[in-house]
Design a protein around this nucleic acid. Structure first.
Lengths: 130, 130
DNA sequence: CTCCTGTATGTGTTAGTGACATATATATGA
DNA sequence: TCATATATATGTCACTAACACATACAGGAG
């Protein structure tokens, strides 16, 4: 039932949310932050604390590489900003395709909250019950 | 402030929850299921639906490899069960070290729920407000 | 007896990811 | 001129998810 050669027990990945389960949570965070306000990588690192990453300074490599990757996939667009003082910034904004991706992520994030809550309920009933 | 050579902006990984963020969510699920009731891999695949994985038949490779890995790390222990009919089963149960790991996971899972909820709040305020 | 199905446990491979280290450039103030 | 803050980026490595595939035992159908 669970596993035979014609109907493998694990379903094929159909969702276009990369990662499917939940890793790459940084991607939807970056998308929604950019949707609120176009921004650049360095600023986004700070703004990630708005997404429940308080105190956990994010890896710049992760931020910059994800931004470039999402640009390659057409989820965000960028342009150089040289007007202000300091080194040039690469300003990112969300494309229509990126906005669709946000909706898609929201569905999966709801599902994941359900799973995590399910774990916590089990946990509490085992270790927190009187 | 965010990034200088002496105090890198991303903190070192100190937590003993492998994966730190949330991937490998299958591990705490297996641990708590085994804590409820010692079981074997094939059965655990079915029981994962109790953990919010309804309809998503898990990859056997993930289940079995994670079980073996956790055994190697001393989080679970196993013994062959040959009494019943059918092929032999490898019966797993949680060790004291594994129980500690469950507590550790619970902390991080609470944090992750906070993060995901934070995302959804932003999402709703942008796309669901009147 | 043979074949199919269900139960049960694994291995092999590959692309992708996270974590960490490091490099580079601009501007400001001490 | 030297340290610091701002800003972006590359290199590497171990680990993971995803998928394909292999193996073995047992029961029932034909």
């Amino acid at each position: 039932m669970l596993n035979n050669k014609n109907n493998l027990c694990h379903q094929k990945q159909e969702c276009n949310c990369p990662g499917f389960k939940i890793h790459r949570f940084i991607q939807p965070c970056l998308l929604i932050l950019l949707h609120e306000d176009p921004s650049h990588g360095y600023e986004l690192m700070a703004r990630l604390s708005e997404c429940g990453f308080e105190g956990e300074n994010p890896d710049p490599a992760m931020v910059y590489r994800n931004l470039r990757k999402m640009e390659k996939e057409g989820l965000v667009a960028s342009q150089w900003e040289t007007a202000e003082a300091g080194p040039a910034k690469r300003l990112y904004s969300v494309t229509p395709k990126g906005e669709k991706s946000i909706h898609s992520w929201a569905v999966h994030i709801k599902k994941q909250i359900k799973r995590l809550t399910c774990f916590l309920e089990k946990y509490d009933s085992i270790f927190m019950s009187p």
